[in-house]
Design a protein around this nucleic acid. Structure first.
Length: 727
DNA sequence: TGGGATTACCTTTTT
DNA sequence: GGTAATCCCA
């Protein structure tokens, strides 16, 4: 059934390299796809081409991405390319796919059919809980640190028993890890990393299941390969077996998630382990003008350990990169807002302008100025819909309807809205649960029997039982409505004068349930013909795995505010990168990590390559950070951009040319009596070069100053010895 | 037990 | 500076 004209049509308009990648033979391949080089197009066209040329049916394809958004986009584009039904294809995130596999084979991995998924906040509270039981000092073992430890172990593919411990501290960590996993198993819950690890174990311990899927998925395609962690890589290797081929697309220069376990090294390992003969580099950029690309290339060139790649474009040089220097953060923000106002007045859509920053804390002052100027804007990131407190409360009630043994859910709402169950009653309950080795819910039932309506533990038990009974036979949206009402959540928020938004969110949850219900109907039997879990359990899994995507007023034309991380994969006509200062970008913390600076540089590379036509870089001499005024100097990344690509919009300080010079809005430094040095003073050192005084200690006779030298780093210098010149 | 007050935190983030 | 968690008192 091969259609000879269709593939030609499909391939029309691809450049040579893209065409080569799309039509590679059945072998593993690595596609190095630079920013804006048509990566998603190659990926989707590859799938369409494989199907259309009859090499494989949709059933034989597995497509893996990192975000639900990317998965959705791929399916949408594919749907537009192919006239046939692609339902049989598996496409999703690593976590979504593992969830699917575990649901289908829950018996083999010893999980209940209705196992629940803990998000990070749930996981943290579960860790705190087990630490309390184990009597662990949370000063010595900060729960967040324990969480990081457990997740990174799992992401390396390690169980507690397999972790090495060198001293009593790491030994204790290991024990907490072990007990935490036991607790999760008891409660029938899994965290995000566990989804992957459990699935990996399923495939590695169970030959027939492994072979089944190996036989099925002849073609595996992976997006953003540079972001895979160790375990994801091992999982892929297991699924691929010896016969299947992996089509990996990635860009080592855009690897910005090492801090959460991503291993760029997987790209080199992949080359070796899969005997990759085909490495295709997509270097032609269809997004930006060459001034922008040249700047990006110049920056990333300073990194060692690259696979090597240089973006080019046939578009012209375009506009110079505009650089602005502010006196302080407010001055910088005012400049950005004025500039955006002017662009908007000239007719540019606000949605085509992005305002990027390194860390979320920077958005506040920008938002303040935008708000005063009356410019509509939208901030990405921050609290997601399914992570809002009221939504999590409602979901906890639903989880208790699905399975009472979920201790995390029970603890979240046993006294919310308050019903007179305090710390003492809880302790008694936990003690009883421990004695009879049961879940808290079972202990509560023992204590209260069937319970009687009202306050206290009796009331709570009666309430949950009532919910469980009344929800039988209801549709999903009705169940959600029932939970939000019977629980008293609605009444509680109605009594609160600021509860309006929260009730609106509860309504939105009902809407989400309606949407989910419509979409999932008819999908309740899995491919083996087994009756799948209840629609409620499916909805709960969906809520954990897809916490984002529920954003209000997405349609309105508004300026886009986000961190550089959040901007990855997006593009805009005009991009502002603010706070391009030492200590902020590159971030101070990065210097404590191995290769931290290189990751910051990749981050800058990502930021710069978001812009199509116009790019602004701005920095400020001083800014409020953590409630203190901090003095910074321009980022080293600015120096890495060739001067001929940039245009300085202003110049303040000694190098003033008088052009467009703003008036100082606030005293920059506070002068110190009897001090030859003041904070904010520019200085020069014979070895470290130029810098700025940021702090001092001691008295006039024995004074030490802290100087930010930028490239040479932050130094404490004793004035008695160090030869410092004022500038 | 629960609400008001005080105090520790503070890069980046998807699942 | 802003928030979330914890502390303390009624």
């Amino acid at each position: 059934m091969m259609n000879s004209t269709a593939p030609t049509l499909l391939l029309a308009g691809l450049n040579d390299k893209q065409l080569e990648a799309v039509t590679l033979p059945h072998q593993s391949a690595l596609i190095l796809a630079g920013a804006g080089s048509g990566k998603t197009r190659v990926l989707t066209t590859r799938i369409a081409w494989l199907i259309q040329t009859g090499q494989v049916s949709p059933h034989g394809i597995l497509s893996v991405t990192f975000t639900n958004k990317a998965a959705k986009e791929m399916l949408t584009r594919l749907g537009a390319m192919l006239p046939i039904n692609i339902r049989g294809m598996w496409a999703g995130t690593f976590h979504g796919l593992c969830n699917r596999l575990l649901r289908a084979h829950h018996r083999e991995v010893n999980l209940p059919a209705t196992f629940q998924i803990l998000d990070t906040a749930d996981q943290l509270s579960a860790i705190k809980r087990i630490m309390k039981v184990m009597n662990v000092d949370d000063e010595k073992f900060p729960p967040k640190q324990v969480l990081g430890y457990i997740n990174s172990c799992k992401e390396e593919g390690l169980r507690a028993y397999a972790v090495e411990s060198y001293d009593s501290h790491s030994q204790r960590m290991r024990e907490i890890f072990e007990e935490y996993d036991k607790q999760c198993q008891r409660e029938g819950v899994v965290d995000f990393a566990e989804l992957l690890l459990r699935c990996y174990e399923l495939l590695s311990n169970n030959a027939s299941i492994r072979e089944h899927y190996q036989h099925r998925f002849r073609y595996i395609l992976v997006d953003e390969f540079q972001d895979t962690n160790r375990l994801q890589y091992l999982w892929l290797r297991l699924l691929a077996g010896s016969d299947n081929c992996i089509f990996a697309v990635g860009d080592d220069d855009q690897s910005i998630y090492a801090f959460r376990g991503a291993r760029v090294g997987n790209m080199r390992d992949f080359e070796h382990d899969f005997n990759v003969q085909n490495i295709v580099k997509l270097e032609q950029n269809y997004r930006s003008h060459s001034n922008i690309l040249d700047a990006a290339n110049a920056i990333i060139m300073h990194n060692r350990n690259r696979l090597g790649k240089n973006l080019w474009t046939s578009a012209g040089k375009g506009e110079p990169i505009r650089v602005y220097e502010g006196y302080n953060d407010k001055d910088e923000a005012v400049f950005i807002v004025d500039e955006i106002k002017a662009l908007h007045a000239e007719g540019m859509e606000l949605g085509q302008i992005a305002l990027l920053y390194r860390s979320n804390a920077q958005s506040r002052i920008l938002e303040h100025e935008l708000f005063s100027a009356g410019l509509p804007y939208r901030v990405y990131g921050g609290l997601r819909f399914f992570e809002r407190a009221e939504v999590k409360h409602a979901l906890a009630y639903l989880r208790l309807i699905a399975s009472g043994d979920d201790d995390t859910a029970l603890l979240r709402v046993i006294n919310f809205p308050t019903r007179g169950i305090g710390a003492r009653s809880l302790e008694q309950l936990q003690e009883l649960a421990r004695q009879q080795d049961s879940s808290l819910w079972q202990a509560a039932c023992t204590k209260a029997g069937d319970g009687k309506p009202g306050r206290g533990l009796d009331g709570f038990v009666a309430l949950i039982k009532q919910m469980q009974e009344e929800s039988i036979g209801l549709t999903l949206p009705e169940q959600v409505e029932l939970a939000t009402r019977l629980s008293g959540l609605r009444d509680h928020y109605a009594a609160d004068k600021e509860g309006e938004d929260r009730i609106a969110n509860l309504d939105e949850l009902v809407n989400a349930a309606i949407a989910f219900n419509n979409q999932e109907i008819g999908m309740q039997v899995d491919e083996n013909g087994e009756v799948a879990m209840s629609i409620l359990a499916q909805f709960l899994a969906h809520a954990s795995l897809e916490s984002g995507e529920h954003q209000a007023d997405a349609g309105r034309d508004a300026l886009q505010l986000m961190t550089v991380h959040a901007a990855k994969g997006l593009e805009f006509n005009t991009v502002f990168i603010s706070g391009v200062e030492e200590g902020l970008f590159p971030h101070e913390q990065s210097s404590f990590e191995a290769n931290g600076l290189e990751e910051e540089r990749r981050l800058m590379y990502v930021a710069v390559t978001r812009a199509r036509q116009r790019l602004y870089l701005s920095f400020a001499q001083s800014r409020m950070l953590h409630g203190q005024v901090r003095y910074g100097i321009p980022s080293r990344f600015l120096d890495e951009i060739p001067e001929e690509l940039t245009k300085r919009l202003n110049s303040i300080g000694s190098k003033s040319n008088g052009y467009n010079q703003p008036v100082p809005v606030a005293p920059v430094a506070r002068p110190q009596a009897n001090m030859p040095w003041k904070i904010g003073q520019a200085v020069a050192h014979s070895k470290f070069g130029q810098g700025v005084v940021v702090n001092y200690e001691g008295n006039a006779n024995d004074l030490r100053v802290q100087v930010n030298f930028g490239k040479a780093g932050m130094k404490w210098l004793a004035l008695e010895y160090a030869k410092l010149e004022t500038l």
